[in-house]
Amino acid sequence: MQRPRILVVDDEPQIAEVVEAYLEREGMIVEVCASVAAALAALERVAPDLLVLDITLPDGSGLAVLRVASSSSRRIPTIVLTARATEADRVVGLELGADDYVVKPFSPRELVARVRALLRRTSEGMPPGGVRPSRRRRVGDLEIDYDFHEVSVAGLPAGLTATEFRILALLAENPGEVFTRAHLLDRLGDDGAIFERTLDRHINNLRKKIEKDPRKPEHVVTVYGVGYKMRKL
């Protein structure tokens, strides 16, 4: 992997300098900004691989930067620096799409460990040179984009829910392999969001969105008495 570029946004120079020294020791290229305006400009100029972002900045909220970093076509993995864990939960867990957080006052060693972990997570499958291959899979008229969590049917977006996407992604990665309900739930239900009685409903909804005739599915087919599989084309 090429040297990762990290954009650090923090208005306290005495913190930013130390963070910069730690990240540079790890072989990373670091750019430091101290305001929302400078960070927005740097996002364009630097095209960072990862963003370390303080939420409280002198000219506004770091959330404005996060919004841009999360919504650009090339989403930038972000670690938020925050004064309160409750605020961090909201930012990371819900609407704004940060990947991780560190609560102030933080240890720079811990921050470096989190930066490395997030880079590792986001660069999985990345070849030397750092250019990520497009993680797409085409099955007949279906196109599954694993990076953007999007599915299109004959070029039109299918509008799958997160659960429907996870089911389809898992089946499509293993075409022809039969998944029992228990196996599917085991692979998908780590957060308890899917139960056996709702799995069939998710599958039915998925079929309505991706199959020409949901009653005669061509992609996600039922193997009677066993479970489901993605038809191998």
């Binding site: 306290e12 913190i15 309160r84 006052p105 240890s107």
Partner: peptide, 17 residues
């Protein structure tokens, strides 16, 4: 609380550094 967090962050970052 925010100010205190920042001041302690400065101290911790520099001493660890």
């Amino acid at each position: 609380g925010h100010e205190l967090g920042n001041l302690l962050a400065v101290a911790l970052a520099n001493v660890e550094g």
